[in-house]
C-alpha cells in the first residue's frame, strides 16, 4: 500500500473559528494506481495532498506513506509534488528550474542535463530551456513545473490541478502523455482536478470529496481498459462513470 489514511482529521485554527479541512478520511491507494481527487473548491483536496507530503500535520487519525510516517517518506524523497501554481524560481532559467531538485540530490551535471532535456521534450517546451519564467505563458510555466516534478523521478507523484491553467488541446495532449508515462513507469499518481472528463479519462480510481467538513463521499473504481485513446471519452462506459462522478459531486453540494 503506498498511501493508507485511517480516520484522518485535520482542523485549522483560524481567527474566526475552526475549519474542518479533513474529516474522518479513509483511503487506500495501492502501488501503480492512478487516483484522482475531485470535489468543489475548499473541500480539502490540496490539504490532503499536503498531509501526504508532510507539509501539513494531521490533528487526528493516521496516515502512512509507503508504510512509513509522511516525514520519513519525505526525507526519503519518496514523492514528487506539482503545486497548484507553477512555483518557479524567477532568477533561474526554465532548464535550471527543472534541474533544481537534481542539483539538490547531487546528481552529476551530465545526468542532470540529460534528464532536463528529456523532460523539456516530454512537456513540449523544446527551445525554451534558456528562457526565464516571466518570458513564458502561465500554461507553459505550469508545464515547466510538471517537468521539474517528473525529473525528480520519484515513484509517487502528487499533482495539484496541474492542467488547470492549460487550454483544451494542450490539456488533452498532456493527459495522453501523462497516461503513457504512468503506464510505462508504473508510478503511483495522486491527481487533483476539477474536470470530470479528465478524472475519468486518467484514473483507475476516482475519489469524490465534499466540503464543510472536507470528507470523501464516493470512491469509484474505473473499469475502463488500460489502453485509452482520447475518443474513449465518447464511449457509453466512459459516460456512465462520468455520470456517477457527477452524481457524487451533486450529492456533496446538496448538503449545503
Amino acid at each position: 500500500m503506498v498511501i493508507k489514511a485511517d480516520k484522518l482529521n485535520l482542523d485549522f485554527e483560524t481567527n474566526d473559528g475552526v475549519v474542518h479541512a479533513l474529516r474522518d478520511l479513509d483511503l487506500e491507494i495501492g502501488a501503480g494506481e492512478f487516483v484522482s481527487l475531485i470535489g468543489p473548491s475548499g473541500c480539502g483536496k490540496t490539504t490532503f495532498l499536503r498531509v501526504i507530503a508532510d507539509l501539513e500535520t494531521p490533528t487526528g487519525g493516521s496516515i502512512a506513506v509507503n508504510g512509513q510516517p509522511p516525514e520519513q517518506a519525505r526525507l526519503a524523497r519518496a514523492y514528487g509534488y506539482v503545486f497548484q501554481a507553477p512555483a518557479l524560481l524567477s532568477w533561474r532559467t526554465i532548464a535550471r528550474n527543472i534541474s533544481l531538485p537534481l542539483e539538490i540530490m547531487g546528481l552529476s551535471s551530465g545526468e542532470q542535463q540529460e534528464r532536463v532535456e528529456r523532460m523539456i521534450n516530454l512537456v513540449g517546451l523544446d527551445g525554451f530551456g534558456g528562457k526565464f519564467p516571466w518570458q513564458l505563458s502561465g500554461g507553459m510555466q505550469q508545464r515547466a513545473s510538471i517537468a521539474r516534478a517528473l525529473a525528480f523521478d520519484a515513484d509517487l507523484l502528487l499533482m495539484d490541478e496541474p492542467f488547470g491553467a492549460l487550454d483544451e488541446i494542450v490539456r488533452d495532449h498532456l493527459n495522453e502523455q501523462l497516461l503513457q508515462l504512468w503506464k510505462k513507469t508504473g508510478k503511483t499518481i495522486c491527481f487533483v482536478t476539477h474536470s470530470i472528463p479528465e478524472a475519468v479519462y486518467l484514473s483507475t480510481k476516482i475519489v469524490v470529496m465534499s466540503p464543510r467538513p472536507g470528507r470523501i463521499t464516493d470512491v469509484i473504481t474505473s473499469d475502463l481498459p488500460d489502453d485509452r485513446p482520447l475518443d474513449i471519452r465518447e464511449t457509453p462506459k466512459f459516460l456512465e462513470i462520468a455520470q456517477r462522478v457527477r452524481e457524487g459531486l451533486r450529492e456533496g453540494h446538496a448538503d449545503d
Binding site: 526525507l75 524560481l89 533544481l100
Partner: peptide
Amino acid sequence: PDPMLIDLMRTYNCSRWQLFITLRLPSSI
C-alpha cells in the same frame, strides 16, 4: 521567499544550507 517555494524545497528534503543558498539568498538580492 513565497511559502510555496519553501514548501517546494522541503519536498526535496534539502539541507538548511541548500535552502539558504538556492532560495533565501537569491530572494534577498
